[in-house]
Amino acid sequence: MSGAQAFDNYGLREEIKAYWSLRAESFDTQPGHEIFSESERAAWQSLLRRHLGPGEGRRALDLACGTAVVSHLLDDLGFAVTGMDWAEPMLERARAKAQSRGRSIRFFLGDAENTLEPDETYDVITNRHLVWTLVDPLAAFREWRRVLKPGGKVLIVDGDFVNPGPVARLAKKLGRWLERLGFTDPRPQNGPGAVMSETHERILSRVYFSGGARAEAVAALLAEAGFRNISIDTDMRAIHRTQRRNFSLLKGLERATQHRYAISAER
């Protein structure tokens, strides 16, 4: 890597960190981030159980844990959970949430691409909506494999948020048309404002998956990193159904037709 590339990556990583630090304040108010119903919680638990099995005290590392939504789901299933994030404002909210709920989840500041954790420490690694932000996903996947115990599993929940399908494109066009006619409010509800949206787009244009994090591309890098028994699960319908009541009709339609997936792989 050239010096110029290293400097650019340093700047990008810092921008990503600052972006999520600013997003922390409103993160738990946004559908699709926090869980707003027991039916949604059950749908997420079913997904985790399907790929990871019961917790039974096994050690789980929840990378880029944010405010600990997935960490709490893992704790519900009986895992011994450690949450890692490199945005301290996210961790402040994660710790407060765990304390208020009486959970013994451990949280610490760290980089998901270079965890500094000892070899063969965890039975399970999870992350949600992290992979699309990775600067060097192959190096990150090798790092995750290193800290997993032999036979341990990684579960990635992510999506391609760059290339919408035809239904999602139609929904966006219809949404813009309704905005122009004054039927809908163009301002995002409980989401990032215009400046943050611009920052998001600037980050997205510079990460590895700037063209979209397709499941097959992620799986190929996992295989290159040494993982085996790689499975791509695109059946997210149960989760989308439970989230729909918290979205507008058009937003719910867009989300349900996006390329979203869960990928599990074994060391």
Rank of each mutant, 00 (worst) to 15 (best):
residue 197 S to H: 09
residue 78 G to Y: 07
residue 3 G to Q: 08
residue 180 R to K: 12
residue 62 D to K: 04
residue 133 T to Q: 01
residue 96 A to L: 10
residue 37 S to M: 08
residue 51 H to W: 07
residue 128 R to A: 15
residue 245 R to D: 12
residue 57 G to W: 13
residue 46 S to W: 00
residue 35 I to D: 09
residue 54 P to E: 12
residue 136 D to R: 09
residue 30 Q to A: 09
residue 38 E to P: 05
residue 182 G to V: 06
residue 129 H to Q: 13
residue 80 A to E: 13
residue 31 P to A: 09
residue 158 D to P: 06
residue 241 R to P: 00
residue 139 A to T: 14
residue 45 Q to D: 14
residue 179 E to F: 11
residue 146 R to Q: 05
residue 253 L to S: 07
residue 41 R to I: 00
residue 100 S to E: 08
residue 6 A to F: 00
residue 234 T to G: 07
residue 25 E to I: 14
residue 91 L to W: 05
residue 162 V to H: 06
residue 61 L to V: 04
residue 143 E to P: 06
residue 10 Y to G: 12
residue 171 A to S: 09
residue 227 F to W: 06
residue 162 V to R: 08
residue 263 I to E: 00
residue 191 G to N: 11
residue 202 R to K: 14
residue 240 H to C: 01
residue 62 D to S: 03
residue 79 F to E: 00
residue 168 A to N: 06
residue 124 V to D: 02
residue 90 M to E: 05
residue 161 F to E: 03
residue 21 S to F: 11
residue 58 R to F: 12
residue 220 A to W: 04
residue 109 L to R: 01
residue 147 V to A: 06
residue 34 E to V: 00
residue 267 R to P: 08
residue 104 S to R: 10
residue 70 V to P: 01
residue 203 I to S: 02
residue 198 E to A: 15
residue 171 A to V: 11
residue 171 A to Q: 04
residue 184 T to D: 01
residue 19 Y to W: 05
residue 177 W to M: 12
residue 230 I to S: 08
residue 171 A to W: 09
residue 103 R to P: 02
residue 64 A to W: 09
residue 123 D to A: 15
residue 157 V to P: 04
residue 183 F to S: 03
residue 207 V to S: 04
residue 100 S to K: 11
residue 75 D to T: 05
residue 36 F to D: 06
residue 152 G to I: 04
residue 244 R to W: 06
residue 96 A to Q: 07
residue 67 T to L: 11
residue 207 V to I: 14
residue 165 G to E: 13
residue 63 L to V: 10
residue 167 V to I: 15
residue 97 K to Y: 03
residue 238 A to C: 06
residue 105 I to W: 03
residue 157 V to F: 12
residue 165 G to L: 08
residue 131 V to P: 00
residue 89 P to M: 11
residue 72 H to F: 14
residue 194 A to L: 09
residue 103 R to I: 05
residue 4 A to M: 12
residue 197 S to G: 15
residue 10 Y to W: 04
residue 53 G to W: 01
residue 216 E to P: 13
residue 5 Q to D: 15
residue 241 R to S: 11
residue 175 G to M: 02
residue 10 Y to R: 10
residue 10 Y to M: 13
residue 11 G to R: 13
residue 49 R to Y: 06
residue 61 L to Q: 04
residue 204 L to Y: 08
residue 9 N to S: 07
residue 217 A to Q: 13
residue 152 G to D: 01
residue 140 A to V: 14
residue 257 T to R: 01
residue 84 M to S: 01
residue 63 L to G: 08
residue 62 D to W: 11
residue 78 G to D: 07
residue 125 I to R: 05
residue 113 E to A: 15
residue 53 G to K: 05
residue 165 G to N: 11
residue 116 L to P: 04
residue 180 R to Y: 12
residue 212 G to L: 00
residue 262 A to I: 07
residue 84 M to A: 03
residue 152 G to R: 03
residue 217 A to E: 10
residue 149 K to P: 05
residue 75 D to V: 04
residue 2 S to A: 09
residue 221 L to T: 12
residue 187 R to P: 05
residue 194 A to D: 05
residue 202 R to F: 03
residue 253 L to T: 15
residue 108 F to D: 14
residue 33 H to W: 10
residue 247 F to M: 09
residue 124 V to G: 00
residue 227 F to V: 02
residue 222 L to G: 06
residue 23 R to Y: 04
residue 193 G to F: 07
residue 101 R to A: 14
residue 28 D to H: 02
residue 64 A to K: 02
residue 199 T to R: 12
residue 114 N to E: 14
residue 26 S to E: 07
residue 187 R to W: 08
